[in-house]
């Protein structure tokens, strides 16, 4: 029920994002979702890809500092209230979100929300108990 996410340290200078994209392209790695958190000096690029190990290898070889993090992908109807319901569940169970990002599913009327939790196992258990659809890694990478 956990999804592997790649996080990359990126200095705020021109060409760095392009370099990440180029390295992934060389390995024919496809990006499923991404989010960029930034400060005035640096950013952290978070990626979900179809081949995590190939991407990690390519980026490390390219000189980037990279880490693998486990996140949770939740599927919700792509309509008003979809996100609200999930956040309410988390709030009621006092589960803290470190960060999150979302994207719309291509061939269905669903949205996928990616969550990074402190206590991932507890979060997955709670979400499933409340009937929330938590996606497996295989499912997500193949989207």
């Amino acid at each position: 029920m956990k999804v592997q996410q790649i996080s990359i340290f990126i200095e705020n200078k021109s060409g760095r994002l392009a370099e990440v994209a180029r390295l992934l392209d060389e390995r024919k790695v496809s990006i499923r979702a991404l989010s960029l958190a930034d400060t005035s000096d640096f950013g952290i690029l978070r990626l979900l890809v179809d081949n995590t190990d190939a991407a990690l290898f390519a980026l490390k070889e390219g000189g980037f500092t990279v880490s693998k993090t486990e996140v949770v992908a939740v599927e919700v109807p792509d309509q008003p209230g979809g996100l609200s319901r999930i956040l309410q569940v988390l709030d009621e169970s006092q589960i803290n979100v470190e960060y999150m990002y979302a994207f719309a599913e291509r061939n269905a009327n669903n949205a996928i929300i990616i969550f990074r939790f402190d206590d991932i196992d507890n979060a997955i258990g709670t979400l499933q108990a409340k009937g929330v659809s938590v996606l497996t890694g295989e499912r997500l990478y193949s989207l």
């Binding site: 996410q5 996080s7 340290f9 958190a37 400060t39 640096f42 952290i44 978070r46 500092t65 990279v66 880490s67 993090t69 470190e98 960060y99 990074r116």
Partner: peptide
Amino acid sequence: EVNEQTFSDEIKVLQ
């Protein structure tokens, strides 16, 4: 320099 030991996917840890 940030390396694998000090890097985190969370901004607050790096700050």
